[in-house]
Write a protein that binds this DNA or RNA. Structure first.
Length: 612
RNA sequence: GGCCCCGUAGCUCAGCUGGAUAGAGCAACUGACUUCUAAUCAGUAGGUCACAGGUUCGAAUCCUGUCGGGGUCACCA
């Protein structure tokens, strides 16, 4: 018995049969009744009144009478054009029975459609940081939410394992690594490689500064600087060009890239080795975050397919060749610019791999939709990518969606690796865990548990705090993250929601008589009704979160449910209720809340502890 | 400058596919643990929903413009 579904269908039928009015689902606007009025659900009659040729109050009154006579509605009242409905208690009890017994409340009917979700997608030259965490959490919860909404979902990532960046780390390791390995240094592989990337950048900067004192640099400055431009501004702007032209280190790195593309065994061997170190490190971080992938794509394996699609597009006249031999696409008709797809030397650019990867994925899995979880700084990139796929009339073009999210910033501004202000993912997880441990020890509830169990609980609490903190904000909003204040554990937080669950589990553990539940003619209180109503909203919220690609909807839903339960808990006794019927009802209600809390939090990748 | 996103309480955010008197948390203050876990609850205080027009029975929500913040407009990824 899905309450909202029942109301919508039945009112639609009733309007047709009793009022000869044919209306669509979407014209039946049903809200949860505001607390200051009597009722559980409210039909907004304004849109219907005109079509019934009545004023809103009359219309609401006559619909109310019909509804009361024909449906499982015990009473109604009319306020202006709002028809407030009071449903039969036994309908609610039936609903509660379903929540507590069926194993799949919150699992929507299969939609028989495959969706692919791409997330994380790191570069292989640096460890994961705060920004990746937001990405990974969004991607993971979209996977869970879409699955609950009835889709077949494939989790994927693209690993940018080739290009100049990884060559920088490789070169630095060759030059200054002295044969060290993550094992020899006892360092996590991704951090190990990241250090060499940083080392390279440091040496490059040193080299660049020295070069700026040379006669050659003076010459370049005299020629290329804008009028009134300071040396400082000019050389800041010139950095990339320096790397690509005058820099000895740059030359070495580029040479390495060419050797890689030519499959030079020594270079490819080193590349494999360093990437493997990174993957081992990433795997550990993913494990701690509780995420997995079904299919991992590597840029090194798809960029050639991208290049061949570009070639085909050129043959078929979708793209054009410039005088210098570079290949372009003109998207001006779509309100975008012209975009390069292949350099004049025939090498591919960033977007090429995405073109190839999309095709590869469609061939592999036939997904009708592909969701890309990528920061909003790449909005334009994805507009262009999707436009190109439409231009090429790819069958998957219309199912592509960019789940764009705002950057995570620190109180002082953006994270900058150069200034050492990057918040490392592993460090952050350690911090929140430590904070959770401190609070748990103060409370003392879990002090007597075995070490292993305690670790498990503290880990769940810390991760809940971190994950909830990041998911509760709508994706498109950028967020400021203050590592100094770490993450709260009180108020609207993950642990607050876990606490409601733990309280319920504690009650259920103490309940020895879990045999037949008999609610008799128990009439739920206002607080209890609020919980029932909110429980009944759950399927719709999942649908909404899936349609809008917005996990924050579930985060807010779960919080409200926990809040309602805490409130109820403080005002009602469960085990020592005033009657056996009340006790049975409250035990059931608690059980239902625990199930839905666990289910909804699982959609966010958050696990429940049994004690805290 | 063009295009995109954001602007709601001191701070962090809900509410936005038009509905009733705009809601939470944090911070501040006041209460509630011999009573199923106080990581909780109850209360006080806090608002020109950035601004100005428009659309209509009704606008925080939709449209237009303005202002403020961010992103992007690379043969970087």
């Amino acid at each position: 018995m899905l309450v909202r579904e029942y109301l919508t269908e039945q009112i639609q039928r009733l309007l047709r049969e009793t009022f000869s009015l044919e209306v669509e689902d979407k014209d039946i606007l049903i809200n949860v009744t505001r607390p200051e009025f009597d009722g559980e659900y409210t039909l907004v009659v304004f849109p219907l009144a005109g079509r019934l040729r009545m004023n809103p109050v009359q219309a609401a009154q006559s619909i109310g009478e019909a509804v009361k006579a024909q449906l499982r509605i015990s009473d109604f009242n009319v306020v202006k054009g709002f028809l407030n409905l009071i449903l039969d208690t036994d309908l609610w009890m039936e609903f509660l029975g379903e929540v507590t017994t069926s194993s799949d409340y919150g699992q929507l009917a299969s939609k028989d459609s495959t969706v692919m979700v791409e997330f994380s997608s790191p570069n292989t030259n640096k460890p994961l940081h705060l920004g990746h965490i937001r990405n990974i959490l969004l991607g993971w919860s979209m996977y869970e939410i879409l699955s609950a909404a009835g889709y077949q979902v494939i989790r994927t990532q693209i690993i940018n394992d080739r290009g100049i960046a990884i060559c920088k780390s490789m070169l630095a390791w060759q030059k200054w690594g002295n044969g060290k390995t993550p094992e020899s240094e006892g360092t996590k592989g991704d951090h190990f490689v990241g250090e060499f990337y940083v080392r390279f950048e440091k040496e490059l900067r040193k080299e660049y500064l020295a070069w700026q004192e040379s006669a050659h640099a003076q010459e370049v400055f005299d020629h290329a600087a804008k009028k009134d431009e300071s040396r400082e501004d000019f050389f800041a702007r010139f950095k990339n060009e320096y790397f690509n032209t005058a820099s000895p280190l740059g030359t070495e790195a580029r040479t390495m890239l060419i050797q890689w593309e030519n499959n030079e065994p020594s270079v490819v061997g080193l590349w494999r080795q360093m990437n493997q170190w990174v993957y081992d490190g990433f795997d550990e971080t993913y494990r701690r975050l509780g995420v997995k992938f079904d299919h991992i794509y590597y840029e090194s394996e798809t960029y050639l397919l991208g290049k061949s699609i570009v070639e085909d597009g050129l043959q078929q006249g979708y793209f054009y060749k410039n005088d210098d031999g570079s290949v372009w696409v003109n998207l001006e008709e779509n309100g975008m610019d012209q975009k390069i797809l292949q350099r004049k030397d025939g090498t591919s650019v960033y977007i090429t791999q995405d073109i190839g990867t999309a095709q590869q994925r469609y061939d592999d899995h036939g997904a009708e939709r592909m969701v890309y979880v990528v920061a909003d700084e790449q909005n334009y990139h994805f507009d262009v990518l999707f436009a190109i796929c439409r231009l090429l009339e790819k069958p998957y073009a219309d199912g592509m969606y960019h789940l764009s999210y705002g950057m995570v910033e620190l109180p002082h501004g953006k994270m900058k690796s150069r200034e050492g202000t990057v918040v490392d993912a592993d460090d952050l997880m350690n911090d929140v865990r430590a904070e959770a441990l401190t609070i748990a020890l103060e409370k003392g509830e879990i002090n007597d548990l075995p070490e292993e169990e305690r670790e498990d609980i503290v880990g769940k609490i810390g991760m809940a705090a971190l994950k909830y903190h990041m998911i509760r904000v709508q994706p498109q909003k950028r967020m400021v993250f203050d590592p100094a204040e770490s993450v709260d554990m009180q108020g609207q937080t993950g642990p607050y929601i876990q606490n409601a669950y733990v309280r319920i589990k504690s009650i259920l553990r103490k309940n020895e008589d879990a045999s037949n539940m008999d609610f008799g003619s128990y009439k739920p209180s206002g607080h209890e009704m609020d919980i029932l109503i909110h429980l009944s909203e759950y399927p719709q919220e999942i649908e909404k979160a899936a349609e809008n690609y917005d996990p924050s909807i579930i985060a807010n839903y779960a919080y409200k449910l926990a809040k309602l339960y805490h409130k109820f808990y403080n005002e009602h006794r469960v085990l020592s209720a005033e009657s056996p019927e009340a006790r049975d009802f409250r035990l059931s209600l608690s059980e239902g809340v625990a199930r839905v809390i666990a289910h909804s939090m699982n959609l966010l990748g958050i696990q429940m502890p049994h004690k805290m």
